[in-house]
Design a binder for these strands. Structure first.
Length: 366
DNA sequence: AAGGCGGGGGC
DNA sequence: GCCCCAGCCTT
């Protein structure tokens, strides 16, 4: 083998496929699956989500909605309830939208060309390539976080991947490297390789069968790759949620429809106010009483639960307060009453789930 | 082109 | 604390 061949694309691909055949012991339920519906579900669930985190959701969804028709006929609230806790809730909304696209535009049959798959809501270049290759053996190369990491290190690509130019470069490189005769095996192989060998921190370069030809490893700067251009700014949010109860064991809630976090999930009566949040309880309760004459605050006004949640772009602080009733119905416009016993049928953000659980628990214990 | 979107886990 | 994860949509 001459030098040119050793450092060629075909060398990379051949070595990777060899690793896959002999040393890839990663197991996942959808591996080798050919039902495009199941592959689609697994891919949507795993967008920006680690396998371990998405696994139980995959099983729940397959069991509850075994076909695209089941999903399309479902009550959206039930689907969101099943998605509850997984995050990135627009994925769930788009899942429902796409299920309808498949039923109405494609006569209930999952589309079998790259462009038709790409036309479905919530499916971008990565997911379209994954479904096209895994379900239909079509020659499209996936580019996900794993692929970007492996390629940027092996070829020492220093173009930031989160730019238009970077995306183009990585996609083109991935296309060149693809084993077009067995794209499903190749795509699975490179992602498994990234997830188990060429990991973000502490990559296993010592045992890596590609390390002798890996440009960044040869320069001893593996951890400088991949290169990213933007830094995420984080802002703080302070929410006070009043758990307003009537004398029929009902709680005031509404679905979050605004352009904000937790769209399509539910919330209690919301007050977003930093200084109020940070105030002492006495001051907080006193201010609430004067600012909301339409509410009636009991003597046992208490902070029921307090939470801090770290999201990608925000740090969210939440207080849940009980002991509040309604004087003036006007205050509650946009909200509606729900039986406490039914609170577990609708989806809430993770940060509210402790409060929800305790509410239901209290209701059950007289 | 840039910004927003959840929650969990590794270090 | 910061970074990453089988990315995508909207503006």
């Amino acid at each position: 083998m001459n030098t040119k061949e050793r450092f060629s694309d075909t060398f990379f691909t051949r070595q990777l496929m060899r690793w896959n055949a002999n040393f890839n012991f990663r197991e996942m339920p959808w591996k080798g699956e050919s039902d495009p519906y199941k592959i689609w579900l697994s891919e949507i669930i795993l967008q920006q989500t680690q396998v371990a985190q998405g696994l139980s959701y995959y099983h729940k969804f397959i069991q509850t909605y075994p076909t695209v028709s089941h999903l399309n006929n479902a009550d959206p609230n039930d689907v969101f309830k099943l998605w509850e806790g997984l995050g990135y809730y627009s994925r769930c909304k788009n899942l429902l939208f796409a299920a309808n696209q498949i039923v109405t535009n494609f006569n209930c049959r999952f589309p079998d060309t790259y462009n038709d798959i790409l036309s479905l809501k919530g499916i971008g270049p990565y997911t379209a390539a994954a479904i096209a290759s895994f379900a239909f053996k079509l020659p499209y190369a996936v580019v996900d976080g794993n692929v970007i990491r492996v390629l940027s290190r092996y070829f020492a690509i220093s173009t930031p991947y989160d730019t238009t130019e970077g995306k183009k470069i990585f996609q083109e490189k991935a296309n060149e490297l693809l084993d077009t005769k067995q794209p499903h095996l190749y795509n699975q192989a490179i992602m498994d390789f990234g997830a188990t060998v060429c990991t973000p921190a502490n990559p296993a370069c010592i045992q890596c069968i590609l390390s002798k030809h890996c440009a960044s490893n040869l320069k001893n700067n593996v951890l400088d790759f991949p290169v990213k251009s933007k830094k995420i700014l984080k802002r703080k949010r302070f929410f006070i949620f009043l758990i307003i109860e009537n004398n029929k064991k009902q709680i005031l809630v509404k679905k979050r429809e605004q352009n904000d976090i937790w769209q399509n999930l539910h919330q209690f009566f919301e007050i977003e106010n930093e200084s109020l949040f940070l105030a002492e309880n006495d001051t907080l309760f006193q201010t609430l009483k004067t600012q909301f004459p339409g509410l009636q605050f009991s003597d046992q006004l208490t902070v029921f639960d307090e939470q801090k949640q770290t999201l990608t772009h925000q740090t969210v602080y939440s207080k849940f307060i009980t002991g509040v009733q309604l004087n003036d119905p006007e205050i509650a416009s946009g909200y509606s009453w729900i039986n406490i016993a039914d609170l577990d049928k609708i989806a809430f953000p993770k940060t509210a789930q402790k409060a929800v659980k305790e509410l239901i628990f209290i209701k059950k214990t007289p």
